[in-house]
């Protein structure tokens, strides 16, 4: 069952976002969508920052850009561990400082393994053998197996307590469509969390989305926050 939280105006949207993440507890694993700024659910991340939960594990492709969104959340010290493929960027100074001063843990995962580990969690797969990373430092200590002459390493699923995702349009039963490359991790993360919270620019009446173009079916979506923009 999907709950749609829609309040008028920017302040209303912030209140709705606060409500949508009000039960995120200390110690939660939170999957956060986005590739750089594209698809980053900034309003939901800001609400999570205001919520003040501590000791979080955050999964995202990057580790924050500039001083807003994920970087602003990291700056509060609320995140104990970052799981990502590419933390180091020209504007990742918030993460860089935390990491260099030993105030945050980092697990670097090849981007495809990161996506597939969440896909596996959402699809009920116990673990899988991936050819990515074989013979590299990122495969050290992992079970390896040769199948049909090719080497693979065992990769475990990544399950989230919460997923925060940005989509473009939702209907009232939580079906989602995305916009261009802002889709990135959204559809996979939506399947991999106990509670999936989505922010959208617009909500339409049920029946208005063409079922043929729905990318994320509403079964995966628990809460929708309308941000009007």
């Amino acid at each position: 069952m999907t709950t749609v939280l829609e309040r008028p105006g920017a302040e209303g949207a912030a209140t709705a976002a606060d409500e949508a993440v009000a039960d995120v507890p200390d110690g939660a694993t939170v999957l956060i969508g986005g590739f750089g700024a594209a698809g980053q659910p900034v309003e939901l991340i800001d609400a999570l920052r205001r919520r003040g939960a501590r000791d979080l594990t955050v999964v995202n492709n990057n580790a924050g850009n500039g001083d807003t969104g994920l970087a602003a959340l990291l700056a509060t010290g609320a995140v104990r561990k970052m799981v990502c493929s590419f933390p180091r960027q020209s504007d990742s100074w918030v993460f860089d400082d935390l990491y260099r001063s030993g105030r945050i843990e980092l697990e670097v995962v090849p981007q495809g393994n990161l996506a597939e580990r969440m896909r596996a969690a959402g699809a009920g797969i116990g673990a899988f053998f991936s050819p990515t990373g074989v013979g590299t430092p990122l495969a050290e200590g992992k079970e390896e197996r040769t199948i049909d002459g090719r080497r693979y390493v065992l990769e475990m699923p990544i399950r989230g307590d919460y997923a925060l995702v940005k989509a473009h349009v939702a209907d009232r039963v939580g079906n989602l469509v995305y916009r261009k490359t802002a889709r990135n991790f959204g559809p996979v993360m939506a399947t991999a969390a106990t509670t999936t919270v989505v922010q959208v620019s617009r909500v339409v009446e049920t029946g208005e989305l063409d079922p043929e173009v729905v990318v994320t079916p509403g079964i995966y979506v628990d809460r929708v926050v309308v941000t009007h923009g």
């Binding site: 590739f35 750089g36 700024a37 594209a38 698809g39 492709n61 981007q111 495809g112 990161l114 996506a115 597939e116 969440m118 896909r119 995305y178 916009r179 261009k180 490359t181 802002a182 889709r183 990135n184 991790f185 959204g186 559809p187 996979v188 990318v215």
Partner: peptide
């Protein structure tokens, strides 16, 4: 801002383009 490449540079789409999520892209 919703249409960028892997280097996070804004790009354009060509006729016949398609979008897909990350697990599909790496599959």
């Amino acid at each position: 801002p919703d249409l960028i490449n892997a280097g996070k540079i804004p790009v354009v789409e060509t006729p016949g383009a398609s979008y897909f999520h990350h697990a599909d892209s790496f599959a």
